[in-house]
């Protein structure tokens, strides 16, 4: 373990912040989705790093659960997109504001 924990956490922070930026600024629904996955990557890395440095399997366990949630989220979210595709032709977050009413 020559690499310090801080280095892993920093990479995790970079990935998480990039993901946040993507979620906040991109218009395409799909890229917003992908950015969320990117945020999850950062979180997963943090979990795994802490798990390794604290010598506890809870970190790995959290990654596995988070993977499960990510898979479920992607499946449902993309299914919603497919259903949405029947009604609209453009997948831009700023155009999809019908639910406001």
């Amino acid at each position: 373990m020559s690499i310090p924990l801080n280095a892993y956490l920093l990479v995790g922070a970079i990935l998480f912040s990039l993901g946040t930026l993507g979620v906040l600024m991109r218009r395409s629904v799909l890229i917003v989705f992908i950015s969320i996955e990117l945020m999850l990557q950062g979180v997963n890395l943090t979990f795994a790093a802490y798990g390794a440095f604290l010598e506890d399997m809870a970190g790995s366990m959290f990654v596995v659960i988070s993977l499960t949630v990510a898979a479920a989220e992607a499946a449902v979210g993309l299914a919603i997109l497919v259903a949405l595709g029947r009604r609209v032709t453009e997948f831009y977050v700023d155009r999809l504001d019908t639910l406001r009413w």
Partner: peptide, 13 residues
């Protein structure tokens, strides 16, 4: 209440 998801996300962030 703009109905813009990303405005809400911005507030969350």
């Amino acid at each position: 209440q703009t109905g813009q998801v990303q405005n809400y996300l911005f507030l969350i962030a």
